[in-house]
Simulated scan of single mutants.
Amino acid sequence: MKVLARLPLPFVRGLGSVLGALLYAVVVPRRRVAMRNLELCFPDWTSRQRRDVVRRHFTYFAQAWLDRSWLWHAHPDVTRKRIALTGAVDELAGKDATLVFAPHFVGMDAGWTAITQQVDRKFVGIYTKQANAVVDQWMLEGRNRFDSATPFGRADGVRGLVAALKRGEVMYLLPDMNFGPEESIFVPFYGVQAATVPSLSRFARLGGAKVVPVVTRLTPTGYEVHVHEAWPGFPTKDLAADTTMMNERLQGYIDGMPDQYWWVHKRFKTRPPGEPALY
């Protein structure tokens, strides 16, 4: 990866295209998961439409993974040049308690790199420890290469995160995955009940924070990291209503680039009591 970081972006992306095609052909279980997710979320699509989206998704997935080479190892001028921070960037400035909603698009690492490098504030994020110690250290150092970033482990609890929000630090949250039934609630996602952690609403209330969506798109020249306006009237006192709204807004972001969303994840693995498995 350190070698790739020195090579031209078209070469890295070309290598990612080859790797993506290989993964699509070989990693059959995840290809089936992605196809099943699209069947559930886009039932009006034809099988060919779904296959085309999944094929492109594997390409983008591989390209984004190899892009970690330059995101984490290239000179800071390279990352600044290749990542465009657009939209309501001022929402991330100042001292107001701020919670970033960062959905699981393939470019999520570029989004974190962009704001921690280009926005003059302190940032905190939740980190899941990796099983391999070498990979774990590499990811920690890469994601926190700029001094403004501080990781919190999932096992550390919420107290430190809430305290950071109240100190004026920005929290980067990715709650749009199935983390199991513990503390999850079932709300619709593309019309299908999905176990969803209501952490966006909960952290926003506990920290008195506004919620600012940040959506990252992989582009031929790098990435576009778009900062949306803060959601008005969020959070409310209703966790279920807030989490339902989060999924509705997320659907709008996905509809703009469905091939870059994290479809290889079993989003609907946890089912409400009595419902059959979907995978």
Rank of each mutant, 00 (worst) to 15 (best):
F186P: 11
I83R: 02
S47M: 08
L4Q: 07
V26N: 05
C41S: 03
E224W: 10
R50Y: 03
V53D: 04
N144H: 15
A74G: 08
A133W: 09
A241V: 00
G142S: 12
A97Y: 10
G160D: 08
W65I: 14
Y253G: 12
D67M: 10
R202H: 12
I83W: 02
F234G: 01
A5L: 02
L173V: 07
N37G: 06
R32N: 02
L250E: 04
R271G: 05
Y279W: 04
M171A: 14
L22I: 13
W138R: 10
Y190K: 11
L200A: 07
D52M: 14
K210P: 00
E91R: 12
P273D: 13
T221L: 02
G252V: 06
V215M: 03
K237R: 12
V187Q: 06
H228Y: 14
A209N: 02
F268N: 05
E141K: 13
R154S: 13
L239Q: 14
V162Y: 08
P273Q: 12
L239I: 03
M245A: 11
Q63T: 03
A21F: 10
P181C: 07
S201P: 11
A277V: 11
A240K: 14
R36M: 03
M1R: 12
A195V: 03
I115N: 04
Q118L: 08
G94P: 03
K166F: 09
V119H: 02
D52H: 07
V33E: 00
E248K: 11
S199G: 04
T86N: 08
P103W: 08
D44G: 09
A164K: 13
L250R: 00
V100M: 13
S184V: 01
Y190I: 06
R145D: 09
G180F: 12
T79R: 09
F234D: 02
H57R: 00
A84E: 11
G160Q: 11
D96A: 15
G142I: 09
V158T: 12
P273N: 14
A149N: 06
R80I: 08
F189W: 15
V100W: 01
A204K: 02
R55V: 00
G274T: 05
Y127Q: 13
Y261W: 14
A164E: 11
Y60M: 08
R56D: 15
W45F: 11
R51Q: 15
R143P: 00
R32Q: 12
R56K: 15
T244W: 08
V211R: 08
A204P: 01
P188G: 04
L40G: 09
W65A: 13
R32Y: 00
V53P: 01
V26K: 04
A240W: 03
L250K: 00
A34Q: 03
E182V: 03
T98A: 08
V158W: 10
C41G: 04
M108E: 02
A64M: 06
V162F: 01
A149S: 14
R36W: 04
W262H: 11
H75R: 12
F189G: 06
P8L: 07
L9K: 07
A62N: 10
F101P: 00
L92P: 14
R82N: 09
Q251E: 14
P103I: 11
